[in-house]
């Protein structure tokens, strides 16, 4: 092969390389995914005081359907515990599920729920003679 032809052929192969590199596809799906972290469920902690004949409530959002688990952690007295929809005015809850319970380590309420706004409420069952402190935990998607 003549020297000029050889040079031209080398240039052609170099151009092929450039074309291949420049036109490489940027498909990110080909990247190796990092190991996924375990999904942490949002956890709402709520501590306050409940007065005789009183109620205490807290709202939260459920972004997708799932299970709402409510644990009244520390209450020596049996009180009302419920989950429902926040009132549209005036604060408080309109309950859909409720139990009478004292403190425990396992959820006293575990209920399937559609996405939306919810609230958890504790209330006196008519037995309190003085204010009590309570803490509760709400786990949800």
């Amino acid at each position: 092969m003549r020297p000029r032809a050889t040079r031209t052929l080398r240039m052609a192969w170099a151009l092929v390389g450039v074309v291949l590199v420049v036109s490489g596809c940027g498909d990110e799906n080909n990247r190796v995914a990092a190991p996924s972290e375990p999904i942490q469920l949002p956890e709402e902690l709520f501590s306050s005081t409940l007065a005789p004949r009183g109620t205490s409530s807290r709202s939260f959002t459920l972004p997708r359907a799932g299970t709402i688990a409510v644990t009244l952690v520390n209450s020596d007295t049996t009180i009302g515990l419920g989950v429902g929809l926040p009132r549209t005015s005036g604060g408080g809850c309109r309950l859909g599920v409720a139990v009478s319970t004292g403190g425990a380590s396992a959820p006293q309420i575990s209920v399937q729920a559609d996405p939306g706004q919810y609230c958890v409420q504790v209330y006196d069952l008519g037995t309190l003679t003085e204010p009590i402190a309570f803490s509760l935990k709400v786990d949800h998607p």
Partner: peptide, 10 residues
Amino acid sequence: SLAPLDRPGV
């Protein structure tokens, strides 16, 4: 929700 008018609960 289905709740009493005059007290908390279900």
